[in-house]
Amino acid sequence: MKPLKAFTIPFVGLKVGKHHFDYDIDNKFFEYFEYEDFNRSDLKVNVVLEKKSTLLELHFEVSGTVNVNCDVTNEPYNQPLENAFDLVVKFGEEFNDENIDILIIPHGEYEINIQQYVYELIVLAMPSKRMHPGVEDGSLDSDILEKLEELSPKIKDIKEDEEETDPRWNTLKKLLTDK
């Protein structure tokens, strides 16, 4: 997989201090990773690279919305996203990305590509269950929700349930109230 040039930061020419990089993310970015869960995306990624004499510190922040389908109704809706991530880049003998928060690159490197970190930051910000806000507050009018309600098991009235209980349980219930 060839890296995207826009996400390659040449840090050799940068002065010691903080440097800001802003990225606008749309579906073309996710097509590169063959990730097709988003119908549309409008995300802003802000990266602050702080160059120090012996290491680099990167702070990633993402905010915006992605249009996804609801897991319950399959209706599209806009899911707001916000996430942040910190990465420390050190220099060593060989490339090592085994630790989540620390990246070790060889001494001769002069640039770093951050596209994988941006991708993971966005995808991991998604909730595990995507629920349309109209499902939660009851304002969504959907054929699927009506069918689910029709097919759901009906709860018996509490009075009917009490009449059908075994009388032996009543003496056990008295033990709870006798304290």
Rank of each mutant, 00 (worst) to 15 (best):
M126Q: 10
N96T: 04
L121D: 07
P76I: 07
N96L: 01
E111Y: 14
E93I: 09
Y77E: 02
C70Q: 03
K156P: 00
D71A: 09
L151T: 10
D86M: 04
L140N: 10
D86N: 13
V88P: 05
G134F: 03
T73S: 13
F95W: 14
S128W: 07
I144C: 03
A125Q: 07
P127E: 11
G108Y: 15
C70W: 08
Q79E: 08
L87A: 07
L151M: 14
N78V: 00
I105R: 12
E146D: 12
Y77W: 14
I155A: 08
D86H: 04
S152P: 02
S128A: 13
L148S: 03
Y77M: 04
D157F: 02
M131K: 04
P133D: 12
G92R: 14
S139Y: 11
N74Q: 03
L140I: 09
P80A: 01
G92M: 13
L140C: 05
Y117H: 12
I112W: 13
D137G: 15
D141R: 10
K156M: 06
V123S: 08
P127D: 12
G92E: 05
E109A: 09
K156R: 09
N96D: 15
S142N: 11
S139D: 07
K147P: 00
H132Q: 03
V123Q: 11
D101L: 07
E150P: 05
V135F: 04
E111C: 10
P76Q: 08
S139V: 08
I122D: 07
P106W: 11
E111N: 13
K147W: 01
I102G: 01
E150W: 12
N83A: 12
I114S: 01
A84P: 00
T73W: 03
P133Y: 12
L145F: 09
S142L: 06
E150D: 12
E98P: 02
N96W: 03
E111P: 06
R130I: 02
I100L: 14
Y119L: 06
P127N: 11
F95E: 08
N74A: 10
L151Y: 13
N74V: 13
I158Q: 12
E94V: 15
L145T: 01
K159Q: 00
L124S: 15
I100F: 10
Y77L: 09
I102A: 00
Q116H: 05
E94A: 15
F95C: 00
V135I: 05
N74W: 07
D101E: 14
P76S: 13
L81W: 03
M126Y: 00
K90H: 15
N99Y: 02
G138N: 14
K129Y: 11
D71S: 00
Y117G: 00
I112A: 10
I104V: 15
I104K: 10
E120F: 06
Y119D: 02
I114A: 04
D141G: 01
V89T: 08
E93F: 10
E136A: 08
F95T: 02
V123Y: 12
I102N: 01
D157N: 05
K90F: 01
G108M: 12
G92H: 15
L124R: 13
E82T: 02
Y117W: 04
Y110D: 15
I114H: 06
L87D: 05
Q79D: 00
V123K: 11
I144Q: 13
D143V: 04
I102S: 03
N83Q: 07
P127A: 07
V72D: 01
Y77Q: 08
L124F: 13
P133M: 11
L87V: 06
D97I: 08
E93G: 11
V135P: 05
M126L: 14
I112D: 07
K154H: 10
